[in-house]
């Protein structure tokens, strides 16, 4: 038997604070995870492999790319380079979370491993509630999101084509999540230059480099612009 202590209470508070923030991801990951499970199933991969991928890769767009890569033939070096190219945007997430993720001890490696687009968008924009321990708060957001992704994958792999409900367009829930975070960020500051640099660079690079190759050029453009504008931007911040 155990009496409730501060530790379990603080974990519970963190879980309660984290869960509502992950609800949009719940919908998106269940559906996209299921889509991945169904796709792998249709290519003849036993569910074990979808599960392995969702546990150990845990990167949505990359997992879909692996299906294409496997269809093309066994090429480990090509697969490695493709992985770096598709996932290069994660580097920016890490840089952005360097400060918040300092001093979080044992959970930190998992927090870093689980830094997907969606998890990043939540942890970078959510304020840790005052009475909540940051470590548990970030851990629960990360764990909940991955559990949705894994659950979706398994459901998709098991039920496969039995799902007849028309889910076309439901993945827009993740676009909507990013749009809402963008609006919240926009309203939280008077300096809209960073947001405009992000959107502008990405649109420009999408037009110049095409849909499959524009993320790395976008990152470089953003890096150059925010570096050039460092002085005016910092002056604006202190006003």
């Amino acid at each position: 038997m155990s009496l409730p202590n501060d530790n379990t209470n603080s974990k519970k508070a963190a879980l309660l604070a984290a869960f509502p923030l992950t609800i949009p991801v719940l919908t998106g990951y269940l559906v996209l995870g299921a889509a991945y499970g169904i796709l792998m199933n249709s290519k003849g991969f036993p569910i074990l492999w979808s599960l392995v991928a969702s546990i150990f890769i845990y990167a949505g767009s990359m997992q879909f790319v692996t299906v294409t890569l496997l269809a093309a033939g066994f090429d480990p070096i090509g697969a490695f380079l493709m992985t770096i190219a598709v996932n290069a945007r994660h580097i920016f997430y890490g840089v952005s979370m360097l400060k918040q993720y300092r001093g979080l001890g044992m959970v930190k490696p998992y927090l870093i491993f689980a830094l997907t687009d969606e998890t990043f968008s939540i942890v970078c924009s959510a304020k840790v509630p005052e009475d909540v321990n940051a470590k548990w708060f970030y851990l629960f957001i990360s764990l909940l999101n991955q559990s949705y992704w894994i659950t979706g994958t398994v459901l998709g792999g098991l039920l496969g084509s039995m799902l007849t409900f028309n889910t076309k367009g439901i993945d827009f829930v993740l676009t909507a999540l990013f749009v809402v975070i963008l609006i919240n960020q926009w309203r939280s500051t008077s300096n809209h230059l960073p947001a405009m640099i992000g959107i502008g660079s990405a649109i420009l690079c999408r037009l110049v480099f095409g849909a499959t190759n524009f993320i790395i050029p976008s990152m470089l453009t953003i890096l150059v612009l925010v570096t050039l504008l460092k002085t005016p931007m910092e002056r604006g911040k202190s006003q």
């Binding site: 920016f92 840089v95 360097l98 990013f178 960020q185 640099i197 992000g198 660079s201 925010v226």
Partner: peptide
Amino acid sequence: KYLADILPFTIIGMLVVYC
């Protein structure tokens, strides 16, 4: 540190375009 402060505001915009 400057990048860490400023990048979240640029990346979310990039992610919207990515979607």
